[in-house]
Structures are given as C-alpha cells and as structure tokens.
C-alpha cells in the first residue's frame, strides 16, 4: 500500500518534471535571445547596434509576456517599447551622427566593481524570486483576462490612469520646451 503510493507519487513527480522541462523547452529560445542580445549590447560599442539589439530583446520579452497570459501587455511591449521608444533612440543616434565608434572600455576598477555589484544583486534577486514562489506564499486564482484588466483600469486605478495622461502631456510639453531651446540658452 505504502509502496504503491510511493511509486505513484514518484511517477507523478516524474511526469510533472518532464512536463515542466518540456514547458521550458520552447521557452529556451526567447530567453536565450533576450539574455544574449542584452549581453551583446554590453559588448558592442556601436550605439545603433545596441539599439537594434534592444529591439530584439524587447520583442522576445513581448513574446514572454504573451506566454504569461498578458496579451495586452505583450502588444503594448512590442508597440511602445520595440516600436516607439527604440525608434526614438535610433532617431537620437542619427542626430548625434558620431563618426567614430566609442573607444574601447578599459578593464578598470569600475568594471570590476560593477561586475561584483551585478553578481550580488543577482544573488539577492534570485533568492527573493525563489522565496516569493514558495508554496503557500501565493494563492493561485483565475486570471481575469482582458475585460478584468479594463475594469480594473477604470475603477480601482482610475486616478492613476488619469494622472498618467497628465504625465504624458507634461512629457510632451517638456520635450518641446527642451528641444526648442536655442544654442547655449
């Protein structure tokens, strides 16, 4: 009785593990592309290439957002981030029109300290991530879907939503005021 019980649990665990692994299988490519293009951004010295690498990374992230049952966030990610913001960066790079690529970064103390900071930060975040998903810490429920998202946006978060529109207006006016300044002004 006990043995068969144990065998059943083991089998269930095995299929669960295999299912999990299979789930990670198709996830491997966007994740690798995403991390790889951010790494390429760190290694490359050409700003235009950096921006294009980020377009790739943000598009992959958009796909991952879709896998997380967040279709609206996925669409907004691709439209706003990969589309609008990175194109804005490319326009800025075009305006600078830097002839020579940036000089090679030397391995300084600063690089070393940045690497240590990154590693420590990653360790902390990883521990927090694993703890956050510990059994019992979150209660899974039914996702609300797009309708629930819209309802939340116009009920609980109505003030934040309206303030966001004000923020965008302020950014628009601010950018015009900054860009309209005369040389040395």
């Amino acid at each position: 009785m006990r043995d068969s019980d144990f065998g059943l649990t083991l089998a269930a665990g095995k299929t669960k593990y295999r299912g999990k692994f299979h789930g990670l299988g198709y996830l491997r490519y966007p994740v690798a592309l995403c991390i790889g293009s951010v790494l390429a951004m760190i290694l490359s010295r050409n700003q235009a290439h950096n921006a294009l690498f980020l377009v790739l990374a943000f598009s992959c992230l958009g796909g991952l957002f879709g896998l997380l049952d967040a279709p609206f966030a996925a669409a907004a990610q691709v439209l706003v981030y990969a589309g609008a913001i990175m194109v804005l960066f490319l326009f800025a790079i075009m305006m600078f029109n830097l002839r020579e690529p940036a000089p090679r970064e030397r391995r300084t103390l600063r690089t070393f300290l940045a690497a240590i900071l990154g590693l420590v930060l990653f360790a902390e975040l990883a521990i927090a991530a694993v703890r956050a998903i510990a059994p019992g810490s979150v209660s899974p429920g039914e996702p609300d879907g797009l309708a629930g998202l819209g309802r939340l946006l116009f009920t609980d978060y109505l003030y934040a939503f309206e303030i966001t529109s004000l923020l965008i207006l302020a950014a628009l006016v601010g950018a015009l005021a900054l860009a309209g300044k005369k040389e040395g002004g």
């Binding site: 995403c34 951010v38 940045a114 990653f122 975040l125 991530a129 956050a132």
Partner: peptide, 22 residues
C-alpha cells in the same frame, strides 16, 4: 519562478551595463 529568475538576470545585466558603459 523561471520568469522571476529571468527578470533577475535581466535586471542585473541592466545594472552592469549602466555602470560599464560610458
């Protein structure tokens, strides 16, 4: 947790890039 780990990796890489790049 896999997504949270990816998010941790990306955040650390962002911090690294911010301090390494000039």
């Amino acid at each position: 947790a896999a997504f949270l780990l990816l998010s941790a990796v990306l955040f650390s890489l962002g911090v690294l890039a911010f301090f390494v790049k000039k």
